[in-house]
């Protein structure tokens, strides 16, 4: 990986910053009065953990964390809160005037800025190099691009192939179980 990063103050500073972020929002999760606030704080904490994963060199896990947790599990949580009804008070449509415009501006600036910066800094990675895989990956390392996803994927499909298949079976059973549990017995309720 990048052993030179490990001793740099940038590395420790990023770890501490993401860690403080995770712990602060994590404490909001367990102290928020309404479940929706807890869910939003948990989204923030999970993003901080994804940042920690990225700083620690586990880029694949950082992406999977955002996709699976923030994009999947937390949406499920918010849906269930919507169905069950989380808060005692009814939420105002817009508590502060113009807060939606502010939020939209911040989101567009942050996401757009990171896309622009990322595209600019990752420019050498998109050069297609013919030749053997080892040479290409060496070039990728020299260009500052991690091989983390490739390495984790290789491990998943070779050494951990059997647990991988078992995990897919577990997910299938979980899907069926969730559908069966949430569907209920409408026939008996009609009786």
């Amino acid at each position: 990986m990048y052993p030179d990063l490990q001793s740099s103050p940038w590395f420790l500073g990023a770890v501490i910053a993401f860690g403080l972020w995770a712990v602060a929002t994590g404490s909001v999760v367990i102290t928020a009065q309404r479940p929706v606030h807890a869910a939003l704080a948990l989204v923030s904490a999970l993003m901080a953990v994804a940042g920690l994963f990225a700083v620690l060199g586990a880029e694949f896990l950082a992406g999977a964390q955002v996709l699976v947790y923030v994009g999947g599990v937390m949406v499920l949580f918010v849906f269930v809160i919507m169905v069950v009804g989380g808060g005692r008070k009814t939420a105002e449509v817009e508590p502060v005037s113009g807060v939606r415009f502010l939020a939209a501006t911040v989101v567009v600036l942050v996401i757009g800025g990171s896309i622009v910066l990322g595209a600019r800094s990752a420019q050498p990675a998109f050069e297609l190099r013919p030749g053997p895989r080892a040479a290409a990956s060496k070039d990728a390392v020299r260009a500052g691009v991690s091989r983390n996803t490739e390495d984790v994927g290789t491990d998943l499909y070779t050494r951990a192939a059997l647990p991988f298949e078992v995990a897919s079976l577990l997910l299938l059973v979980a899907i069926v179980g969730a559908v069966v549990l949430a569907k209920g017995r409408r026939v008996e309720q009609d009786d």
Partner: peptide, 24 residues
Amino acid sequence: EVFAVFVMVVAAAEAAVGLGLVIA
């Protein structure tokens, strides 16, 4: 990291089944 991937799978399954239980 491979272990963490499997923990993530189990967490997703747990959330799906658990929230189904909550709705029931």
